[in-house]
Simulated assay, not measured.
Amino acid sequence: MPHTRSVLVVGGGASGNAVTVLLRRAGLRVDLIEASPDWNATTGSGITLQGNALRVLRRLGVWEQVEASGFAYGSLGVTAPDGTVLFVKEDMRTGGDDLPATLGLQRPQLQQILIDAVRASGATVRLGTTAETLDQDADGVLVRFSDGSEGRYDLVIAADGLNSATRAAIGITDRAEPVGMAIWRAPAPRPASVTRTDLTYGGPAYIAGYTPTGEHTVYAYVVEACRDRNTIDPSLYADEMRRLAEQYGGVWPEIAQHLTDPAKVNYTWFDRLLVESSWHRGRVVLVGDAAHCCPPTLAQGAAMSLEDASVLTDLLTSGRPWDDELFQAYHDRRVPRVRTVVEASVQLCRWQLDGERDADMPGLIGRTMAVLKELP
């Protein structure tokens, strides 16, 4: 009887959930562990998904649910701090002409859609569980879990995020570095006039923007210079974000009046990470934020993670041996594309931090989107 390959996925975010669904569809045995007892089902405010992310979600079989839950649109507006619209440009359809250019969605809704897909796939899921030790040999990995149990797998996929413990455990020493900016984010009711993303560069912050995430909801964000996170009282998060938001015009006063619950406001630094060396050590391989992350200035973080899952699945199910050559091929295929996104996202931040007045932001964004329109 042929051996059914087994995979442990560590982390149940976008990349971990996606690779679980795709590998189960290919007939592999997959266990997924997630440290959070609630699978992060209520965490976050909103997310902007461009066409190349939607393309992977369609492959996962969840596009119809995503489309029904979110708000699709095809343009981006740039406004002055007083709300005056300076220009509107059409977004590039990076997922192809049969998908929207962009879709906004409440992040917990996306997570729940992916959770449901993982559950339906037949994968074994263990919440509130971490991998404590990884003992490798030439054929697989023996994993000891935080609950005292253990299991042996042909492959471990590290999808445990920016501060990946698995990445560190296999000796990859790269760590995320702050770029000097931070973001306040919160959900709010959608003003009727908000039917696309509008961005304001300048004013009391570097960027103020909002994205429609559904018929009745919007995701609002304000980007400023990093503060010492230890000096900000979480109980004042809503007050701080509202103070910044109230200084913008247009629909911002309407949004700002709903920024009252500090528990719904998130404050996060912008980080940069790109593991340049191989994304594997033996039979443990990185995906998503464990391998790379970037500021959300291009709204490509989730898209890059979802693409990782898709490309890795293609290679694992290609019939090739699961060896260094295959895992290196995954790295070599992904790194140039991811580097383009990371470097462009960081450059957009640096231009603003440096007060660069002649920066070609539209040109850089356009060139990067053109790359992303190609299949990964």
Results as ranks from 00 to 15, higher is better:
M1A: 15
P2Y: 08
T4G: 05
R5Q: 13
R5M: 09
V7S: 00
V7E: 01
V10Q: 02
V10M: 01
G12T: 04
G16Q: 00
N17I: 05
A18R: 01
A18G: 05
V21P: 11
L22W: 02
L23G: 09
R24W: 03
R25A: 15
A26T: 15
D31S: 13
A35H: 10
W39R: 14
A41D: 07
A41Q: 09
A41K: 06
G44H: 03
N52G: 06
A53G: 08
R55G: 06
V56H: 09
L57E: 00
R59G: 14
V62S: 00
W63G: 10
E64I: 15
V66Y: 00
E67C: 11
Y73K: 10
Y73R: 12
P81D: 05
D91T: 05
M92V: 10
G95M: 13
D97Y: 07
P100S: 11
L105R: 07
L105M: 11
R107L: 06
Q109W: 04
L110T: 04
V118I: 08
R119A: 11
R119H: 08
A120E: 15
G122C: 02
A131H: 00
A131Y: 03
L134H: 02
Q136F: 02
G140V: 06
G140A: 07
V141Q: 03
V143S: 04
F145K: 03
D147L: 08
G148S: 09
I157M: 01
A159F: 01
G161Y: 01
S164L: 03
T166V: 09
A169Q: 13
D174P: 03
A176C: 04
A176P: 11
A176K: 06
E177A: 10
A188K: 00
A188T: 11
A192P: 13
V194K: 00
T195G: 15
T195K: 14
T197R: 12
G203V: 14
A208T: 13
G209E: 06
Y210L: 13
T211I: 15
T211E: 12
P212W: 02
A220S: 13
V223M: 08
E224N: 05
E224G: 08
E224M: 05
A225K: 10
A225S: 12
R227Q: 08
R227I: 07
A238R: 00
D239V: 14
A245W: 00
E246R: 11
W252M: 13
A256E: 03
H258C: 06
D261Q: 08
A263Y: 00
K264C: 12
K264A: 15
Y267D: 01
W269I: 06
R272W: 00
W279L: 08
H280M: 09
G282V: 06
V284C: 06
V285G: 02
V287L: 12
D289L: 03
A290W: 01
H292G: 05
A299Q: 05
A299I: 04
G301Q: 05
A302H: 00
D308L: 00
V311S: 09
L312T: 04
D314K: 12
T317N: 12
S318N: 11
G319C: 12
W322Y: 01
D323G: 10
D324E: 12
A329Q: 07
H331S: 15
D332F: 05
R333M: 09
R334G: 06
P336G: 11
V338H: 08
V338R: 00
R339T: 11
V341Y: 05
V346S: 05
L348H: 07
R350P: 01
W351S: 11
G355W: 02
G355A: 03
D360T: 13
G363Q: 03
L364Y: 07
A370I: 02
